[in-house]
Amino acid sequence: MGILLLIIWLIQDLLYLIVFPGLVVAMVLVILLIYLERKIAAKVQMRYGPLYVSRKVGGALQSVSDLLRFSFQEFILPIGSDSIAFLMAPGFMFAFAMMPLIFIPVGPYYSYLFPSTLTILFSVALITITPIYAIIVGWASDNKFSFIGSLREAFLVISYEIPLLLSVIAMVIVYRTLNYIPAVAFQETHLPGIILNPIAALVFIIVAIRSTGRFPFDITEADSELIMGLYTEYSALFFGIGMATPYIELYALSLIFSLLFLGGWWPVSIHATGLLAGLFLPGIIVIIKAFIVMMVLVFLRAVYPRYRVDQAVRSGWERIIYLGIIAVIISILEVIII
């Protein structure tokens, strides 16, 4: 009996990791998001955007065809590169970008491979690992532009990780838990996090833009200076993985944002039961919220040029970090008052 339960538990976890909200849903959302990003930019820029692949549905299959093209393209290994690091780093990047999803519950009854009450801590900690591999990508390429790109990534990671942690700490102080499910429950009984601490939400959004390389912080891939930044020497599927990784990161960060600030699966109650209301509906709501956040973030491409690296680093140390500290202070005051 115990063995059967264990097997069911494992299957459940596998489904959770691979299908929903894990790999499959993430990839579908990313493909959809890349298409929508191009369409949004095209709308603002008075043009059509992707259209000719599957014209009847408005070019929706463009991203799929791009993925196919990346898959069948010739892969080129530069002679001077550190080939092992060059080949492995994108894979690790992708894997570590996916890993926070293990700890992000999209509903109250989702169990985990590693049951824990510290899910917020784990997911945020895992998010900060991906940039290390980004730096390795630039180093292994043996290209000056990639190398400059990875140096920029290193500078920016250091200056923006602390604000990220500060904004999460601010919310943890308010919710008095390091677990997502009680945090969402707290928002259900009180107010959504974005109203409780708007400064923390702002800091989190800015850091999300920064760490996924959206405009105006598209600094490591600045094409007019660094060609393709880190991925200058990459081709074929490895390039595709490199392209997709920031979007996966964006997905994870948007999920965290919708859980911490947008009330998670609110308006569905945390006490709801049954297959629909307890299992599927919360997940769908969380993902829709996260997708809206992602769309807002990709819309910025159409509005902003990019900052210079020193300006971004300076604003990280001189502005965003203070905003983060203010967010923590607000939370402490709230806790004292309430």
Binding site: Q45, M46, L51, F299, A302, V303
Partner: peptide, 19 residues
């Protein structure tokens, strides 16, 4: 203002391209 202008064009697209 930048965001508002971008949003204005997003909801009210002025398409200039010839298909």
């Amino acid at each position: 203002r930048a965001l508002a202008t971008g949003f204005k064009y997003l909801v009210e697209p002025n398409r200039m391209t010839l298909d």
